[in-house]
Computed example of a mutant assay.
Amino acid sequence: MKNMDDLLEALDLDNHLSFEEIPDIDLYMDQVIQLFENKFADSKRNDDEKVLTKTMINNYAKGKLFFPVQNKKYSKDHLILISMIYQMKGALSINDVKTTLDKLNTKLTEDDFDLQHLYKHYVKLSETNVDMFKEDLQTHKQEVNKEIVELEDTDAEYLQQLLMVATLTSMSNFYRRAAEKIVDEIGKKGEE
C-alpha cells in the first residue's frame, strides 16, 4: 500500500475555507464559484469534477439551504453557509443538510446570530478532526497489517488495499449514520 504520509498529503485534509480567505465584500455568483474552485481544486478526485456550479448554488437557494441573497450578491455569511454545505453534502443528502441548517438560517435572519463566531469554532473543530483522522488512519493500517500477516497470501498488497477500503468505508458509514440520527433529532425538534 502507498505510504500513509503520501496518502494523507494527497487527501488535502486542510480543505476548509478559512475565515481569513472569505472576503469582507459581497461577491457575485461567478466570484463565489471562482473562490471555491480555487480553494478546493486539490480536493477534487479528477479534473472533470466541479466543486461548485451556478446550478448547485441556484438549487441551494431554491431549496432554502441559505437565506436569500441581496442584489445578486453573496455576503460573508452566505459564503460560510455554502462552505458548510460543501462539506456536509459529501456525507449527507441535501434534505439532511437543509434540515441541519434550517434553524441556523432562521437565527441569522430573525435573531441577528453571529455566524462568523460559530464558523471560527467550526474551523477549529475541523482542524482537530484532521489530527484525529491521521491517528485513526495509522491505527487502521496497523490493524489491517495484522490481518494480512494471518492471511499468508501472495497478493498481500492488493488484499491490504481491499481491507483498508473496506475498513474506511465501514467507518465512514458509521459516522454518516450517526450524523443522520442527529439530523433526525434536529428535524423532530423543528416539527415541534
Results as ranks from 00 to 15, higher is better:
M4L: 15
D6K: 15
D6F: 12
D6R: 15
D6H: 14
D6M: 09
E9V: 06
E9Y: 00
A10H: 09
A10F: 10
L11S: 11
L11F: 05
L13W: 01
D14V: 01
H16L: 06
L17W: 00
S18W: 07
F19S: 07
E20Q: 14
I22T: 07
Q31P: 08
I33A: 05
L35D: 02
N38Y: 04
K39I: 02
S43L: 01
V51H: 03
V51K: 02
K54I: 08
I57G: 00
Y60M: 07
A61T: 11
P68I: 09
P68N: 13
V69D: 06
V69R: 00
Q70W: 04
K72H: 12
Y74P: 01
K76C: 10
K76N: 08
I80F: 04
Q87N: 13
G90S: 12
A91P: 05
A91F: 03
L92F: 02
L92N: 02
D96E: 14
D96C: 14
K98E: 01
T99I: 10
T99G: 03
L101A: 04
D102Y: 02
D102N: 12
D102F: 03
L104S: 04
T106M: 06
T106D: 11
E110V: 13
E110A: 12
E110R: 10
E110Q: 15
D111I: 07
F113K: 13
D114N: 15
L115Y: 03
L115M: 08
L115V: 03
Q116C: 13
Y119H: 08
H121S: 12
V123I: 14
K124W: 10
K124L: 14
E127A: 11
T128V: 15
T128A: 15
N129A: 07
V130Q: 07
M132K: 12
F133V: 13
K134Y: 00
K134S: 04
D136Q: 11
D136N: 14
T139G: 11
T139P: 10
T139A: 14
K141E: 15
V144S: 11
N145G: 01
N145C: 11
E147I: 14
L151V: 09
L151S: 04
L151A: 10
E152T: 10
T154K: 02
D155A: 00
D155R: 08
E157I: 05
L162E: 10
L162C: 13
A166G: 08
A166P: 07
A166H: 08
T167S: 11
L168Q: 07
T169V: 06
T169C: 04
N173L: 11
F174Y: 13
R176F: 09
R177E: 01
R177V: 07
A178N: 13
E185R: 15
I186N: 02
K189E: 15
K189S: 15
G190E: 06
E191P: 02
E192M: 10
